[in-house]
Amino acid sequence: MSFLSNLISGLSLGSIYALIALGYTMVYGIAKMLNFAHGDVIMVGAFTVIVAVNSMGLPAVLGIVLSVLICVVMGVTIERIAYKPLRSSPPLSVLITAIGVSYFLQSLALIIFGSTQKSFPKVFNMEPVHLGELTIKGESIETLVVTTAIMIGLTLFINKTKMGKAMRAVSEDRAAAELMGISVNKTITVTFAIGSALASVAGLFFGATYGFIGPYTGSMPGIKAFVAAVFGGIGSIPGAMLGGILLGVIENLAKAYISTELSDAIVFGVLVLVLCLKPTGLLGKKINEKV
C-alpha cells in the first residue's frame, strides 16, 4: 500500500511540475525562447497568497484570484519590457535576458520579504482520505483534481478555439501565420498570460504541499519543470504534461525506495538516458531538414 501512496504523491508533485512545464513549452513553441524567469513566477504567485491571506486577512479564494491576476500582469509586463524588444535578436541574448529577469525577481523578493522562509497559509483544509490501509493527503487530491481540470481545459482551448488554433499556427510557422493575418504580438501576449496563470496555480499547490516559501523557492521546481518539458519534448503540450507527471513520479519513487539524497541525480540521470535514446524528447517532433 505504501507504494500506491508514494505513487499518488508522486503524481501530485508531477502534476505541479506539469503545470510549470506547460508554461515553458508554450512559450518555447510560440515565442521560440526559453523563459528562465518562469520558475520565479511561482514564487511571486505564492508570496502573493501569503501577503493576501496572512497580512491582509483576505479569504483564501480571493488570495488565489489575486495571485493569478498579479502573475498574469507580471508575465505579460516582463514579456513587453524585457523580451519583446529582443524579438529579432539572437536567441542567446533573449536567454541571458531571461536569466537576468529571474535574478531580478529573486532579488526583489529578497528585499521585500527577507531571506527567511515564510509559512504558507492553510488554503486547503481537506482532511486526509483513508481507503482501507491507504492514506491520501488532502493536498494531493486537490492538486490532482485541479491540475487535471486545467490540463483538459488547456487542451480544449488549444485545439478548439480560434486563439488556440492561431497559437498552433504561430508555433509551426510564425511568418506564414502572420501573413495569414494572425497578430504574432497578441498571440505571444496570450501565451505569456496563460503560462503565468498556470505558474501561479503551481505556486499555490507548491506552497500548500511544502508549507514554506522563500525568494529562491521558484528556482528548483522551475528547473525541474524545464527538465520535464525537455523530457516530454519541448514545444509539445501533451509532452510537457507527460514529462512533468513522469518526472514527479520518478522523483518520489526514487526518494522512497532508493535514496532521498540521490533522488535529483536519478531524475536528471533518467533525463540524460531519454535524451540519448530520443533526442527530441518523448513526444517531441522530429525535425526533417530538407537538403
Binding site: 480560434k162 488554433k165 498552433r168 499556427a169 509551426e172 510557422d173 511568418a175 506564414a176 501565420a177 495569414m180
Partner: peptide, 17 residues
C-alpha cells in the same frame, strides 16, 4: 509553408482568422 500538423480544414480556417 502550410501548417503541416493541422488538418486541411484548420489550415483554411487559420486563413479566415
Amino acid at each position: 509553408r502550410l501548417f503541416g500538423k493541422m488538418t486541411v480544414m484548420d489550415n483554411v480556417k487559420i486563413g479566415m482568422h
